[in-house]
């Protein structure tokens, strides 16, 4: 479903963030991307929908012919609608209401003036109601996004990504700004929703424990290179040391 071939990114300051990533993700697989900060996790998922332009390499989405890196602007927008994204600091537009934030996921499908006057198709609105009910925030839909708590905001962020009806979810550190309880709830919600919809997802996460608990497959990234790719159970002490460096991993490593 998603295939990257030798994907590289060099920032203008010469920093090599990605050193040729080769990866294939089948339909409906939830993948956790772990690695120390600065390993290139954020850069990697942003090169997939070209929020960050890759320097070289290919990204095939949906089929072997559809190379995202060579699309023009309007085709890129069409691909972006099929890729939902969830962010670290929730990235809700704080001065818009919850409903507007959720509906903004449909922007790729409605014309400018309709979106300007907030006139979304009835189908989208019903879907938004359904999603808000699913994440348990139906009663909040008129609140402004900055009135919500962290966990609630991230739920709205999830709803915004899902209303795009995506084939793939890119998730950037969804739990970094949340407390442990909310983190687990959010991770569970994401994984449940992915299962319900047979969605593939790439989840950047620095919490190894959460990654092991929720993902089917783990990819370890270090300094822009893949150093581990396999089952959560395969994360041994030696491999964690390889990814993160020397530390006492005996409590975390899979037994």
């Amino acid at each position: 479903m998603l295939k990257t071939i030798n994907l590289k990114k060099v920032y203008p300051n010469g920093e090599e963030a990605l050193k040729g990533i080769n990866l294939e993700i089948p339909n409906g697989q939830v993948v956790a991307l772990i690695g120390p900060s600065g390993a290139g996790k954020s850069t990697f998922i942003r090169t997939i929908n070209r929020l960050v332009e890759p320097t070289s390499g290919k990204v095939y989405f949906a089929n072997e012919k559809n190379d995202i890196t060579s699309l023009n602007k309007s085709k890129l927008r069409k691909i972006r609608r099929q890729i939902g994204m969830i962010f670290q600091e929730f990235a809700l537009v704080e001065r818009l209401s919850v409903m507007e934030n959720v509906l903004s996921g449909r922007l790729g499908y409605v014309g400018f003036w309709n979106s300007f006057f907030r006139k979304f198709p009835q189908k989208d609105i019903e879907e938004a109601f359904r999603l808000l009910q699913r994440i348990g925030l139906e009663h909040m839909l008129d609140k402004r996004a900055d009135e919500l708590s962290g966990g609630q905001r991230q739920r709205v962020g999830i709803a915004r990504a899902l209303i795009q009806n995506p084939m793939l979810l890119l998730v950037d550190e969804p739990t970094a700004s949340l407390d442990p309880k909310n983190s687990r709830q959010i991770m569970r919600l994401i994984c449940e929703l992915c299962n319900e919809r047979n969605l593939a997802a790439i989840i950047n996460i620095h919490d190894v424990f959460l990654a092991q608990n929720f993902a089917e497959r783990i990819i370890g990234l270090k300094a822009g290179e893949i150093v581990y790719d396999g089952k959560p159970s395969g994360l041994s002490e030696a491999i964690l040391t390889k990814i993160y460096g020397e530390e006492d991993w005996s409590k975390t490593a899979a037994n």
């Binding site: 409903m99 507007e100 009835q122 609105i125 019903e126 109601f129």
Partner: peptide
């Protein structure tokens, strides 16, 4: 109250 309930469905408007 921007949720507008019609007979058989409900919809939403900003205002």
């Amino acid at each position: 109250m921007p949720i507008i309930k019609q007979k058989d469905y409900k919809t939403w408007k900003k205002f």
